[in-house]
């Protein structure tokens, strides 16, 4: 109890002082021990303490800072992917060096900090301080410097273990140590899930062998699947995948924008979904017109008002085709300004 009290007192004093002075290795180690993940989470109040330093008391250790966000509103895929990789990077270091100090050269220590944006409106001060516009961003603060002595680390293009390996190499070079090894944590959950899935799959196949056979031989299923695949492809799915475009953008006033206007050669992710719906509906309507209506005709042949029903149905389908096509051309004309052949919107009548 007493120790705890003393400790918190000490921390308070340190905090007071350290808003001016740089943190020492011991302070880093203590903070790291306190935080569960070996990563120091920076806030508006403490970022100058951990990243800073003055002439008299410079920063005691090398610090790698990650500026990122896990908030889904931003749709930052790279941030989310890099989250786990950054963890692997950190744990690999502390696995060998629990105190954060290099074994080769006790003078050299390395600690990790992270600044996260939690909500769109609340950008941490650290972002403004370092003038950051893109995330994720890695800044490396070498030991012995002040807050403005840092260098930007490039985030490699590759993903996964490759990226961590590259970063480790970069860090080794920047600090000048060689005892930094990558430990890939064995992902038991993944193995478990895979094994279970395989087992379940084999079991299901074994049990419903006959059903699976009919399913595989089902013409309709194949037809729907291949048409769905084609629709995905022609609505720019591969573009999203290769370019990694965001799902949607934001306008000048922070509102959500779904369609990237006047950009003929680019698009947002959500456009693919909009377009897929259009294509799907139009294709379904055409199929309906060419196959459904004759069937309907056969079905109602005996009834007196049959011809009327069939006629109305086909006219409704044709009008629906027109409406969707009109909507489609209007969406298109936002992509290509000045497109002269857009159809008249039916909804404009009302």
């Amino acid at each position: 109890m007493r120790g705890n009290y003393l400790y918190s007192c000490l921390t308070a004093v340190v905090l007071l002082v350290s808003s001016v002075l740089g943190a020492t290795v011991e302070q880093f180690a203590a903070e790291v021990a306190k935080s569960g993940h070996n990563i120091i989470q920076l806030t508006d109040s403490n970022y100058k303490k951990w990243l800073g330093g003055t002439h008299k008391v410079p920063r005691g250790a090398n610090v790698l800072a990650l500026f990122t966000t896990t908030a889904l509103e931003f749709g930052c895929q790279t941030c989310l992917k890099f989250e786990a990789e950054y963890d692997a990077l950190v744990q690999s270091w502390f696995n060998d060096h629990p105190g954060g100090v290099s074994k080769e050269d006790p003078e050299k220590a390395l600690f990790f900090v992270k600044v996260s944006v939690m909500k769109p409106g609340q950008i941490p001060n650290a972002f403004k301080y370092f003038n950051l516009e893109h995330i994720p961003k890695l800044l490396f603060f070498p030991a012995g410097g002040r807050i403005d002595d840092y260098q930007s680390l490039d985030l490699p293009q590759e993903e996964g273990t490759m990226r961590v390996t590259y970063l480790i190499t970069a860090l080794k070079g920047a600090i000048g140590i060689s005892d930094y090894q990558l430990y890939v944590p064995t992902d038991w959950s993944s193995i478990g899930v895979t094994m279970f899935a395989v087992f379940a799959l084999v079991y299901l196949v074994r049990k419903h062998y006959a059903f699976l056979g009919t399913l595989l031989a089902s013409r309709a299923l194949w037809a729907v699947c291949s048409v769905a695949f084609i629709i995905l492809m022609i609505s720019g799915y591969m573009f999203n995948k290769i370019r990694g475009v965001p799902l949607a953008g934001s306008g000048p006033h922070g509102e959500v924008v779904y369609i990237l206007e006047n950009e003929f050669q680019s698009q947002y992710g959500i456009e693919t979904q909009i377009l897929a719906v259009f294509y799907g509906l139009l294709a379904a309507l055409v199929v309906g017109l060419s196959m459904g209506i004759p069937k309907l005709n056969n079905y109602y042949q005996r009834r007196s008002d049959g011809t009327f029903i069939v006629a109305v149905a086909s006219i409704v389908l044709a009008v629906a085709v027109y409406m969707f096509f009109a909507a489609y051309t209007n969406v298109y004309s936002t992509k290509q300004g000045g497109y002269p052949f857009k159809l008249f919107k039916v909804s404009a009548l009302f």
Binding site: I230, I231, I234, F239, F264, Y279, V286, S290, F325, Y332
Partner: peptide
């Protein structure tokens, strides 16, 4: 390719295509 190219290059054939 982003999607507008498909419409640009084939107009309404592009939605007749899946059908």
């Amino acid at each position: 390719v982003a999607w507008p190219a498909f419409f640009f290059d084939s107009h309404f054939l592009i939605w007749l295509f899946p059908a």
